[in-house]
């Protein structure tokens, strides 16, 4: 039997406590008006913190091999690729009219 790390109930309980605090923080933050962009970034940041806690402790990634960590991160890494190039399009659309405007191919 390979030794597998046993995470203690106390750790789990601490994590749960932190998650509650973060949840309260994210609800609280939504009542402070920082401007929609900063509110969004703050909410995302708190959600990422919650996710990290769950992934690291509840999902034992902190105690896993490097390879498992890489596999766990791969999906998020690929999402960042997707997000970056996708938003490059949406944020640049208003920068100019399409070079094809007026052509038979539309614009």
């Amino acid at each position: 039997m390979s030794e597998h790390h046993i995470v203690m109930p106390k750790t789990y309980a601490t994590v749960l406590g932190c998650l509650f605090v973060l949840m309260a923080a994210t609800i609280g933050a939504s009542y402070i008006h920082l401007g929609s962009t900063y509110n969004l970034l703050l909410a995302l940041f708190i959600a990422l913190c919650k996710m990290s806690l769950i992934v690291m402790f509840f999902m034992h990634v902190k105690y896993s091999s490097k390879l498992t960590k890489v596999f766990a991160a791969s999906g998020f890494f690929w999402l960042i690729i997707f997000f970056t190039l996708l938003f490059a399009d949406y944020m640049a659309r208003h920068l100019s009219t399409s070079p094809f405007a007026g052509s038979p191919y539309g614009g």
Partner: peptide, 18 residues
């Protein structure tokens, strides 16, 4: 290969800079 998908969309109304 994951970074090039937009080349199918040059005439679809994708941003010129994209």
């Amino acid at each position: 290969g994951f970074l090039v998908w937009g080349h199918h969309m040059y005439v679809s109304g994708q941003a010129m800079y994209s």
